[in-house]
């Protein structure tokens, strides 16, 4: 008898626990977390990982100069494209939440994200990708081997900034 009572109590508690959200209209979170990667962010991350591998392979002597330049160029462009998409996602997100934030806070957040994206973009460009013709260049180059343009990252480094 005691067992039946306990079993009944157990069943009641479990059923009440499980049914409560439906009866009380309580919802599970349906939205993405802010720090959860979006598709564009994920693609960017994958491109960054691939770039890291290419750099490692090159410096470990697994890639020829020509292959390295080709792959670095391709992946840099992929990363830049994903970065543009991400910037678009951020703008959409800010536009959508503009009414919830104060003007100052919204501007501050926008600036922070844009600065971050600019820094990322710069970190690609400081590398071997020519900003004029998108040709990758050897690491020590000061000027693009394809079009002769000064490589911006190198110029800045020379200026000591």
């Amino acid at each position: 008898m005691t067992v039946l009572l306990l079993a009944g109590l157990l069943a009641t508690v479990v059923v009440a626990y499980v049914l409560h959200p439906v009866v009380a209209g309580r919802w599970a979170p349906m939205e993405r977390e802010v720090d959860e990667l979006t598709e564009a962010q994920h693609r960017k991350r994958v491109a960054l990982l691939a770039l890291r591998d290419v750099e490692y392979d090159y410096h470990a002597g697994k890639l020829d100069d020509a292959d390295y330049r080709k792959q670095k160029s391709q992946l840099s462009l992929e990363a830049l494209t994903a970065l543009d998409e991400e910037a678009g996602e951020w703008r959409t997100r800010f536009d959508a939440s503009a009414h919830e934030l104060g003007e100052r806070e919204e501007r501050a957040r926008r600036e922070e994200v844009e600065a971050e994206i600019a820094a990322l973009r710069a970190s690609i460009r400081e590398g071997t990708v020519c900003t004029q013709c998108a040709t990758p260049n050897p690491l020590e180059s000061r000027y693009c081997g394809e079009c002769g343009s000064a490589l911006p990252g190198r110029e800045r480094a020379r200026r000591g900034t």
Binding site: R45, L48, L49, S76, L120, G127, T128
Partner: peptide, 13 residues
């Protein structure tokens, strides 16, 4: 460790 920024030459990931 997963890079969140491009490993530019001399800049690391």
């Amino acid at each position: 460790g997963v890079p969140t920024r491009i490993p530019a030459p001399g800049a690391g990931s």
